[in-house]
Amino acid sequence: MAEQPEPSSNGSKLLRTLGVESTMRIDPWWGLVVLVIILIVVLCVVSADPFWNMLRFVSDGILITVIITVSSFVLVLVLGLFGGLGRLSQNRFIYALATVYVEIVRGIPLLVQLIWWYYAFPAVIKEVGNSLGIQVLADYQANPIAMAIVGMTVCYGAYMSEIYRAGIQSIPRGQMEAARSLGMTRFQAMRHIILPQAIRVVLPPVGNEFIALLKDSSLVSVVAVTDLTRRGREYMSTHFNPIETWTMVALVYLVMTLLSARGVAWIEKRSKFER
């Protein structure tokens, strides 16, 4: 009578009526992922030209997008931790440094930051090299992918700092006090007591940052990085089929973001049970 409907009640109801007791829970969102993948496959099969050709053409761009996203994100996790701890530091200098960093970065559009790192930063290095007579610096050539990763990391690191800061602050003060009263240093208390609890709190927003970073990585196409978006543009400019090209590019991004969202949900769920 007061039966609680389960999230995936259709499947389990069917199994139950068949006399099968199901312990497997199918997340209905997976359906959407599968649907988009099927759509891509159907398009490629039904009309290999241009869809399949196009997909093959941009596949190296997909790899670049993944590389930039993943490596930036790993660096963002580290930079954000330092930024977040800096924003909570009792040392005024460190606090000021972290705050200035966060405020400056958050006040500038990501696209402008990426352009700055690719065009302005190498020029600055060259100037310095020239004026100091250091040949290595004067000959400095910017690597587009490296600069894109730097740009994405610096920008997202600022937002991540604030997420970490909020997460750490959400842990009751008593936890730190208990740890300190037992003789732990501030560092030990952070590492063993506060951060493990804060990580659980920040998991959902951190997951969102990953997906946002993945989408924003398309901006690096402007600074000479041959990512998915740029390869899409290259394909279109030779084949003149904007509808097919940009539909396919959009679908590929969609698959990646949907998959990421499932991954994030999975990690969140696991971290709830496993303590």
């Binding site: 008593g174 936890q175 003789g183 732990m184 007591i193």
Partner: peptide, 22 residues
């Protein structure tokens, strides 16, 4: 101060057990 604190146990009104640990 941590040396001194090791010699002093403190019990709080709100228990303050570490929530993520058994």
């Amino acid at each position: 101060i941590n040396i001194v604190r090791q010699e002093i146990g403190m019990v709080f009104q709100s228990f303050n057990l570490f929530a993520h640990l058994t």
